[in-house]
Write a protein that binds this DNA or RNA. Structure first.
Lengths: 256, 256
DNA sequence: TGAATAGTGTCTGTGAGACACTATCGA
DNA sequence: TCGATAGTGTCTCACAGACACTATTCA
């Protein structure tokens, strides 16, 4: 019974885990300008950063970046530290995903891994590629990562879960802002959503999002000092109204 | 760097955690018949089960039931096992909540706790109250647990998080089914939602939920073999149509 | 002028929301 | 007949969804 375990508890009297790492699924949205006669939206792709392992176990296989948690930090602290070590940046979106603890998942012993996912900008990962102790680093599309690569440990499961989670978050929260500049056009927003969630189809997207009720205050138009709407023609011939996210996160319900 | 840690990894060469417990926030919806002249809905209250600790640390304080994870099981297995030990039942809703790892959260050492929440029926907890090795067991409303009791470790945080999570899940998934019989009336459903999320107010609940579009197929009417609608007057003079949940879980989006 | 993207006009159908009204049954 | 819950009638307004149309800019 749990109470007996607790009342007799004494560190090292029982078998304890051999390590508690934090592994991070680092997503980025790459953006490549297209060479066309007229202005167009850039191509965007959702990619995940992996490193090729050099040592046992799983030498030569691709794995998530991560590292062991230390006694004087929380798991979240460890993930923050790893993210900074890998990208050179603190800040950005870092969110807990879950725990992976199936017995035998790591040949080194009883290793309980905590997965996070991070949304980072592409240039942050380029720094990482320059660092030398890193080993080989790669940016892969989700399809490549999940269907073509040989992944270490249970990282295939972790990436699958992270992909599902980021898709859900993309539709239910405003994390799209992590992949956009502060001011953006509705086409850009739509493109970001569709890049992460290809199933998302809204033919009347602009219509719906600009009708006050349904956007529920998550967006507002950008206006200059004089109160005039601000638009941009960076990606199109005709200038498009710029929008920004508000601080409001709506509460969804299946019953309303 | 994480790679160096990994390449030199050797169990017990580094400081490792002193234990990885699973703690469970067991919610139940109590149901008490009211003595009135005519039939009425029962009173319902959301409660959480706590046990009073008998030993150091936090002796005498109220704590979440839980126990240490063993090497040959996953954290989820450990939670399942604990849930069964506490309630005598396997099955029911058990869901991962998160990890609690702030340094110093447990005076016994480096203890990383994994929290779950479970939705159980009241009678399952009564069995637990009968078992003797258990120590004192109590069922408390959320307000009592969070504002009046002295809680062990960081269990106040865990219960707060679990409460927010169950409220979110109540509105965004069909976990309400865990608190209802297979066939139920819309008043019962509304009451269950309101018990868990008091802020939820829908004056036209029946109207909205019975209009095909907005209920999105999560509910369907109960019909008998002949295809006639089935109703019940268990809680009201006038019989009410019975409904049941379908297997459909709708996908919500802030953008549609 | 044509290509490419940004938006609007307009119509139909349907849900939201409010509020008063009727229905059913048993005490 | 009254109390208590279940459910409907009806009205207004706003949004959803479709589709054709106009607007803006630059090569």
């Amino acid at each position: 019974m749990s109470e007996n375990v607790e009342q007799n508890y004494n560190a090292k009297k029982y078998r304890t885990p051999d390590g508690v790492p934090a592994d991070i699924v680092m997503f980025t949205l790459t953006k490549r300008e297209r060479k066309t006669v007229t202005k167009t939206l850039p191509l965007r792709e959702l990619k995940v950063m992996l490193i090729r392992r050099k040592k046992w176990p799983c030498a030569g296989m691709w794995a998530l970046p991560g590292g062991f948690c230390q006694e004087d930090e929380s798991i979240y602290d460890a993930a923050t530290r790893e993210l900074k070590e890998e990208t050179g940046v603190d800040g950005g979106h870092l969110e807990y995903l879950g725990v992976y603890s199936t017995p035998g998942r790591d040949p080194r012993g009883w290793i309980i891994s905590h997965a996070f996912f991070a949304l980072v900008e592409e240039w942050m990962l380029e720094q990482r590629q320059a660092s030398d102790d890193a080993g080989e680093v790669g940016l892969f599309t989700l399809q490549e990562a999940l269907e073509e690569l040989e992944l270490a440990f249970d990282h295939h499961d972790i990436i699958t879960d992270a992909y599902l989670r980021i898709q859900q978050q993309m539709l239910q929260t405003t994390i799209a802002r992590q992949f956009l500049p502060r001011h953006f056009t509705l086409s850009e927003l739509y493109q970001v959503i569709q890049t992460v969630v290809p199933e998302f189809k809204e033919p009347n997207f602009i219509r719906k999002i600009t009708s006050t009720r349904s956007r529920q205050g998550i967006l507002k138009e950008v206006r200059d000092e004089a109160g005039n709407p601000v638009s941009s023609n960076q990606y199109s011939q005709r200038p498009a109204q710029l929008y920004m996210f508000t601080d409001h996160e709506p509460l969804l319900s299946i019953y309303t």
